[in-house]
Design a protein around this nucleic acid. Structure first.
Length: 570
RNA sequence: UGGGGAAUGGUGUAAUCGGUAGCACGACUGACUCUGGAUCAGUUAGUUGGGGUUCAAGUCCCUGUUCCCCAGCCA
């Protein structure tokens, strides 16, 4: 599955380290990882990197395991809806955690017992400082903090107070349990960090059993320890927390997993923070978490991205500690690479222009054979109806074409895909001068698409028979943001101001070949010469199919036009 | 200004003990083509600056520079 496991390629630094640990016996010959999401939002492509890493490493090693564990220590932000979506998305990506579905909340009793143990050992104390006071006492990046006035309470007093915290005797935020470490430590995480806070909130799993909740820092390392995780892989921002996890584990005298940090995924034209994605959803900038413009796995799925393409992408981007930003183009490449091999080809006209073939017999209909997938002969062929009146793509005709335009123009001959050679003989315009119809002639000798006299055409265009066309709606997507780095706060702009006003274009009145009346939902189709399109699972109806454009085909003509425009100017 | 990390073509990512800087995407040529798709062949372009050690430095030493993370009772 992973290129990293194939011969000839080298291991990334994490896999190299694990291989080393296996060799030296450091992890007891085991490889056990975990993917630890917080159920406070939907998974996105950045999580896919972590999922592929953790589950991938487990799969590559004999006997390797990867747990799914929800880090649900903050009931004010977490919901069952998110748990369900996360599980669905991981399965969809192609990974399986067996029966090892865990929750940090499963360990609340154990964590509480450990907190008591730390109090008894004189390593934790109840602090009455308010949140603001705690911050003031913490000091700054360059100045040490001061000891809390409550730091030297007796073990008995701490035990009593902590039990009463749990019993609900004190209001939210009035007290915390803190670790007694060092208020002058250069790593701020070590300046007597909060272990427990008072929080009256309904937890999605434990209900109202608790009114105190452990901090992530006091839960994460222990959760890994309980599950006997050998390699605890996480993102760079937790590097500063590693000394604290290790301190807790040491203080408690329990098993210590090895944490290894890597750089999270950044993508151009994309925001990846859950906070910002939540804002997009809540403020209605997108349709929801699964809006096809969202980088969420549910959005990508709805758009037509395949798990295979996403996994291939995660494989290619590599794993390192350098904070990099991947070009969106690489993701599109992975999409096209997968879809080109597997997508069934069909013909669809997005912006129809009517064509009447004047020398074609009135009322005649032919069934022409079309290849389903030129990349895979096993996919066979289908019959496509042809008639006197067709629709072609508006972009495939120009009345006054520039030099390198190969398609249809007055007097010019092109091939209709799988059909006949067609020559434009006339143009019909409306009162405003807009071309509304083409008059054409066809060469009956070229049925199937080849001329017996061997003459060539410069272009082949797609078409749909007007009499048989299915009307459909097509949604074209562009990047959600118009700036390459929407997160860049340099000019004081909010990321919302960088939303791309043209990220969605809805096309109605599209003309689809008849087989698209009831579209498949397994894979996107390739609309020949246009791109890949997935039937929208929400909006599509039998009488009116709706398609999402997954990604365009590579388009050298569009690129040429762009270059011309850039050179010549408007 | 404290602490913790990181710097290899336009973008990512490799390079075993110090021994030919490789791969992918992009860009650019050309071939082929019933998708201006795909495919094939080729070109382009890089070791953060400055010193040092060495026959030989991306790699070792010294010294700068830049970027990221940390002052939630978020994760």
């Amino acid at each position: 599955m992973s290129s990293n496991s194939q011969p000839g390629s080298t291991l990334d630094f994490i896999r190299a380290r694990i291989a080393e640990d296996l060799k030296t016996g450091k992890s007891g010959g085991r490889v056990h990882t975990r993917f630890p999401p917080e159920p406070n939002g939907y998974l996105h492509i950045g999580h896919a990197k972590s999922i592929c890493l953790n589950f991938g490493i487990a799969a590559e090693n004999e006997g390797g395991l990867c747990n799914l564990r929800f880090d649900d220590t903050n009931p004010t932000k977490e919901e069952q809806e998110y748990v369900d979506s996360i599980k669905q998305d991981i399965r969809w990506l192609g990974f399986d955690w067996g029966d090892r579905e865990y929750y940090a909340s499963d360990y609340f009793d154990q964590l509480y017992a450990w907190a008591i143990q730390m109090i008894e050992d004189g390593k934790a104390y109840v602090c009455d400082l308010s949140a603001e006071e705690t911050r003031a006492y913490r000091g700054t990046l360059t100045r040490p903090g001061r000891n809390s006035p409550y730091r030297d309470r007796t073990v008995e007093e701490n035990l009593d107070l902590f039990e009463r915290m749990r019993a609900g005797e004190f209001p939210d935020g009035s007290r915390t349990l803190r670790a007694k470490i060092d208020m002058a430590h250069p790593n701020l995480n070590m300046r007597d960090p909060v272990m427990y806070r008072i929080l009256r909130a309904e937890h999605h799993r434990t209900g109202d059993k608790w009114c105190i909740y452990p901090m992530y820092d006091f839960a994460h390392g222990q959760s890994d320890a309980i599950e006997r995780i050998t390699h605890s892989i996480c993102t760079l921002e937790f590097e500063n927390h590693r000394p604290l996890y290790d301190w807790y584990l040491e203080a408690l005298g329990i098993y210590r997993p090895q944490q290894i940090e890597f750089a999270r995924l950044n993508l151009t034209y994309t925001v990846m923070s859950k906070r910002k994605l939540l804002a997009l959803v809540q403020e209605g900038h997108v349709e929801g978490w699964d809006d096809p413009r969202m980088p969420t796995l549910s959005g990508l799925r709805r758009r037509g991205c395949t798990p295979e393409a996403i996994r291939a992408f995660c494989d290619r981007i590599g794993v390192a500690k350098f904070n990099s930003t991947i070009d969106l183009g690489l993701f599109e490449f992975c999409l096209r690479e997968d879809l080109n091999k597997r997508s069934p080809r069909v013909m669809a006209v997005l912006r129809p222009l009517k064509v009447v073939i004047e020398n074609y017999p009135e009322g005649r209909v032919e069934e022409l054979e079309a290849v389903n997938n030129p990349e895979d002969a096993a996919e066979g062929t289908r019959q496509v109806p042809f008639g006197k009146v067709l629709y072609i793509e508006r972009d495939d005709f120009m009345e006054d074409p520039p030099k390198k335009f190969f398609r249809l123009a007055p007097g010019r001959e092109v091939r209709l895909r799988y059909a006949y050679f067609l020559t434009c003989t006339g143009v019909v315009k409306d009162s405003s001068g807009e071309v509304v119809e083409l008059r054409c002639s066809y060469d009956p000798q070229t049925r199937g698409g080849d001329a017996p006299d061997g003459r060539k055409v410069k272009a082949t265009i797609h078409w749909v028979s007007a009499a048989h066309a299915v009307d459909g709606e097509v949604r074209l997507y562009d990047t959600l943001f118009s700036k390459e780095n929407p997160d860049d706060a340099a000019d004081g702009e909010d990321f919302r101001e960088r939303l791309n006003p043209r990220s969605l274009e809805v096309l109605t009145g599209c003309k689809l070949e008849p087989s698209l009346a009831t579209p498949q939902t397994r894979l996107p189709y390739q609309f020949e010469r246009l791109g890949y399109f997935m039937a929208d699972p929400r909006a599509s109806r039998p009488e009116m199919p709706v398609f999402n454009r997954t990604v365009t085909l590579r388009d050298t003509w569009a690129k040429l036009q762009k270059q011309q425009a850039a050179k010549g100017g408007p």
